[in-house]
Computed example of a mutant assay.
Amino acid sequence: MKRILLRNLFFCFLGGVFLSSCISKKQIAYFQKAQGEHDTISVAQAYVPKIQAGDILSITVSSLNSMASSFFNPFSNTTSDNATNSTLNGIPAVSNATGFLVDTAGMVELPLVGAIKIAGLTTSSARDVIKARLNVYLKEPTVNVRFLNYKISVMGEVAHPSVYVIPNERITLPEALSMAGDLTIYAMRNNVMIIRDVNGKKEFGHVNLTGRDLYDSPYYYLHANDVVYVEPNRAKRQQIEPVFKILPVVLSAVSVLMIVIYYSRR
């Protein structure tokens, strides 16, 4: 009777270990519909980045006189050459493109025009300010302003953790994770962390990818220099914790011992 009880307890223990390592569908499926939730939901307001000190900008100028315009484009060749190196295995990565640096005072220095304060402006507003200054030198100038260092970092349990340059100056969290090759099976999908610079301080936000609240979250649209960290789940932690490394050996030894005891008493 004791042997039967001991054997049942052993198999119950094995069953408990097996079940504890299983992952349910609710833990891995994205954007699950909550009870009473509609299939059409609100989306967070789109993020429009503003120029800050330390940004590197591509500023290209054109006009009716192409030769005169070329004087204001000292980085045109360098930028185009380096832009071709901004991928890593087909994935957008950190670019070493050269452009106009916004100094600590929020100013950018243009040839002949001199210093122009553009910190705090969007790229479209900066374009208008620069264009107004160029009207003195060029006839019907056209200005294009873009960020060259608009980047985000994706790290943790994703297929391709890296720093990614965003050419269109707008990216959502699902897009960033897709760019990084999606989350691995060991990712904790209900507690993805976003680290953001806000007024000189670090802000730590958390989102749940298994629900639809993400779309109305302030972290749906990522900001420049955001860091996305995907935490490993319990199954991954069990793989690296010493107790779970030796557990199969212990269980095997116990099984052999129980078999020996069982047959020795027959």
Rank of each mutant, 00 (worst) to 15 (best):
Y47W: 01
Y47L: 08
V48E: 14
V48C: 01
P49I: 07
P49F: 06
G54H: 14
S58H: 13
I59P: 13
I59N: 07
T60E: 15
S63H: 07
N65D: 15
N65P: 14
M67I: 14
F71K: 13
N73Q: 13
N73V: 11
F75P: 10
T78W: 00
T78N: 02
S80G: 03
D81C: 07
D81N: 15
N82L: 12
A83E: 09
N85C: 01
S86H: 02
L88T: 12
N89Y: 10
P92R: 12
N96Y: 07
A97V: 12
T98S: 14
G99R: 00
V102M: 05
D103S: 07
T104V: 03
A105P: 00
A105G: 06
A105E: 11
G106Q: 08
P111C: 04
L112T: 06
V113N: 04
K117E: 11
K117A: 08
I118P: 09
I118D: 11
G120V: 13
S124G: 09
R127S: 15
D128S: 11
I130R: 02
K131M: 09
A132I: 01
R133T: 00
R133L: 00
L138A: 03
K139F: 10
E140Q: 15
T142I: 10
T142W: 04
V143K: 03
N144P: 00
N144L: 07
R146S: 15
F147M: 09
L148T: 03
Y150W: 03
V158H: 05
A159G: 03
H160D: 13
P161E: 05
V163Q: 15
Y164V: 09
V165P: 04
P167W: 04
N168E: 14
T172N: 07
